[in-house]
């Protein structure tokens, strides 16, 4: 009896550890770090998706991004979900959502408050509304900002010319 309790507790601890290992962390980043990533001279295509937990259409778009990320596995494409949530809602809003949806795309929270400067630095054609998706491939000299939610097929169509 005791041994089975011990065995069960051990199993629980293992499960908890496994959970911890897979649960995604969300790093808080500032613009210079993101800028470096966005301007890297590389043949990898980057798909940056600007979203927030309070943005309904963003949440509706997430499954399509996740699915496309899976669909292009093995190709030189990297996805990054950039949360524009307030930094004080990282623990209360962002992490719970990232974990409950088991997001596999990496997620960062962009902690910048001067949006007027930031938005033009990211892309001058962006008005600032969410969601927005920015696809960049430096080697192909290609860059596109799409300022509306996209479904899986639309995303794939947008990504294809970059590959």
């Amino acid at each position: 009896m005791i041994s089975s309790v011990i065995r069960f507790s051990f199993l629980l601890i293992l499960l908890a550890l496994a959970q911890r290992a897979t649960a995604q962390q969300v790093r808080v980043v500032k613009w210079p770090e993101l800028q470096t990533l966005m301007s890297q001279a590389t043949d990898t295509t980057y798909v940056f998706n600007f979203w927030a937990t309070w943005c309904k259409p963003c949440l509706q778009e997430l499954p399509a991004l996740e699915a496309l990320n899976q669909a292009v596995r093995g190709q030189k494409v990297k996805f990054l979900l950039i949360s524009m949530d307030f930094v004080n809602q990282l623990e209360s809003k962002v992490l719970p959502l990232v974990r409950s949806r088991k997001l596999t795309c990496p997620v960062v929270l962009l902690n910048e408050t001067d949006h007027n400067t930031l938005i033009d630095q990211i892309d001058r054609s962006w008005s600032g509304s969410l969601p927005a998706t920015l696809i960049i491939n430096h080697q192909k000299n290609r860059r596109k900002l799409i300022e509306r939610p996209l479904n899986f097929n639309e995303l794939r169509v947008e990504l294809t010319p970059f590959l």
Binding site: R124, S125, S127, I136, N141, R142, K144, L145, E158
Partner: peptide, 18 residues
């Protein structure tokens, strides 16, 4: 023009919010 997907990497296009 924006939809054509041929924007240069240096985003020279000036803003137009609305």
């Amino acid at each position: 023009t924006l939809g054509a997907g041929q924007q240069p990497v240096q985003n020279a296009a000036a803003p137009l919010a609305n």
